[in-house]
Design a protein around this nucleic acid. Structure first.
Lengths: 215, 215, 215, 215
DNA sequence: GATGAATGAGACTTCATTCAT
DNA sequence: CATGAATGAAGTCTCATTCAT
């Protein structure tokens, strides 16, 4: 097996893409995209307001006409990331509510993985920079995050109750499955030679095996 | 299922512990431990030389009598982390060389997980701050990291060849399994209510299921 | 004797009141009042154009439709303050032109004190922020100020010549008497428990004693 | 009477002199002196850290090796000023404790005036920039200030009780007398053509007249 | 009149690092 | 081995002001 070269960077992907419809118009949106790229690459502390402004092509003071502080730029990114996650997972759960836990878990994991293949930068920032926010700025995102964890835990519980899943330690299982998707953002890219769908399907199968579905 | 409260911090663990026998004596060692704690909590860019010195109880200028730069402190931590990983994985592989791929994979995953339960701060720094190092300082660690990935990949290939494992996409499987352990560092702690052994055993089972061992 | 608590603020009074008939109508007047309050509290350098605009409820750019610069707001306040002083002192002098120097000095000091009890914020700004103006903007106010000092000096000279006053050092006397009133603006307020008239009468007596009237 | 030209500056004096024995040695002392001059001339908000550093001849960052913030420089100046005032007034009161209230009041006013002729810049900063300090930094100075006001009030009460003074409104009298000295700092200088002793003696006589001593 | 966006300058402060002692 | 003092660069953010709309 040939292992692709591993790069000591935070993310492999490069394009700072935000979900459709959420990017504010004009300068405000450009600031958000520049912040996304720089926060993903260097972390919140490692990215400077001047770098962001420079990437946008504005004076660094102009940034403050759009966001009251560097933290607010991160907060908006983190909020967008968490809302997209909540939307996608909720839709996945809702779309399979009438089906068994197996299909619902698969749908959730697929959605989770696709979120990370589609917006790897956003996912990295969302997952690993939340700690840099003040409690007030972090609060909305924390709540969304809890909702998502709950969603996955509920499906697991449902499958266990119905006998579809066989799990020794449900908490560890939900943690492991949730972690699977998170990691995707750090290596998914065109160099991998696999489509987003292929990765999502494969990871859904991994998740089903972890819970011993079809035992 | 009750989900433990999720905290937006980089690590749950608190004690800045380094593997036995590798901590330099005296001030040099204290600097390393302080750096470990601060880099884990705030990242390389977010931690300052004065914070480190303050935690050690020395003047920030004194730090330069022990390390030539802030980057060298991180580099030593990252090197220690990678060497510990290499050592543990190599020993796990060597100790099961005469057994089947199933037992060898289990041993590798157990070792990988235990590395992250035993040195969560070091693991976080090792995994997520390597990008902050210059290529020269990062080079030794990159090589160790490749060795470890190779180790895991080889076991997988062996198991596939022997028919013990049944895997659609070996690369994704090795990636997923490797990622399992990495995540452990971010949430393992006493509040979890599980011992390191319990987590390691469980995760080893997850890995075996992912490769469909005992199909 | 119970000393009222001393507060390290520039003024005790709070209402930003301007003399009747001099406040420009509309936004222009509101800017002037906001500037008065902020310059009195924080000084010219310590108050920002945005604070002023915020207090008025307009955009900071709008301020420039009414005044060409921050300095011009201060200049107008300082001019108003000096003109009010000149008006009041001139009237006091004119109203007692036919009486003796004793009554004229009393009238002048009373007027001076009442000016400071009635417009303490304006007096503070007028007295202590003139230095922040460019020479051109400060020139008109400097002239008014000289006129007022001249007015007081003339009464003193008259009283000395007539034998009503007995003064060792006229310059020091006029300086001390002038300084008496200036200080009033910094502590006069409702908490003092004395009316403006009481303070004015008392200070007039102090002035007469300083010049040894009725020796 | 010829009135000396009045300058719209905060102080007439120029030399940034601190009381003997209180100036810290080396750079720390030079920073204090530069801060004294600039705060007196432009106020706390109007003087910049770079101006101070420039006047000392150091990089602005170096200032922070000696004082933790701009506010701490002002706080030390204000403290020195208040301590010098307390020392001088206390000595004046103590040196005349065995004499009558008349001589004690004269001694106090003389001391107060001389303080302002000797350290006019320090007096201006001490009197008019205390408001710029945070409550914590201002606290020590506020206490000293209260002590001094109490000292003057006590002498007045003593003189009233003994019949040496005849005062309608003691609070206004103590306020007026205290204000006399404060103003001195703003105009005393060589151009005045009077020595410090002459001004102090004259002002002491003014004070005694205000309280109607020798009626 | 009023505004949002923009800017160059500069505010205070912290950064990693150096060096004489 | 340790330090205090120093520095140039850079940090985040606010300043007064301008201009097209």
């Amino acid at each position: 097996m040939e292992l692709p070269a591993w790069e000591p960077r935070r993310v492999v992907a490069m394009a700072a893409v935000l979900p459709e419809g959420v990017t504010p118009p004009g300068t405000r949106g450009k600031i958000l995209e520049a912040g996304l790229e720089l926060f993903a690459e260097s972390g919140f502390a490692g990215a400077s307001i001047r770098q962001i402004a420079g990437m946008v092509g504005i004076n660094s003071a102009t940034l403050y006409a759009h966001y009251p502080s560097k933290g607010h730029v991160l907060a908006e990114l983190v909020r967008i990331g968490h809302e997209e996650m909540r939307t996608r997972l909720t839709e996945a759960a809702a779309g399979t509510a009438d089906e068994g836990a197996v299909r619902q878990l698969a749908a959730l994991v697929r959605a989770h993985v696709l979120l990370h293949t589609d917006y790897p930068l956003l996912a990295v920032v969302t997952n690993s920079e939340l700690h840099a926010l003040s409690p007030e700025l972090a609060a909305p995102s924390r709540q969304l995050r809890d909702e998502c964890r709950r969603l996955l835990a509920d499906v697991l519980e449902r499958g266990i109750k119905s006998g579809e899943f066989e799990v020794d330690d449900p908490l560890l299982a939900v943690t492991a499955i949730g972690g699977l998707g998170v990691q995707v953002a750090q290596w998914f890219g065109p160099a991998l030679g696999r489509t987003r769908e292929q990765v999502a399907d494969q990871y859904a199968r991994f998740a089903l095996r972890i819970v011993n579905a079809g035992h």
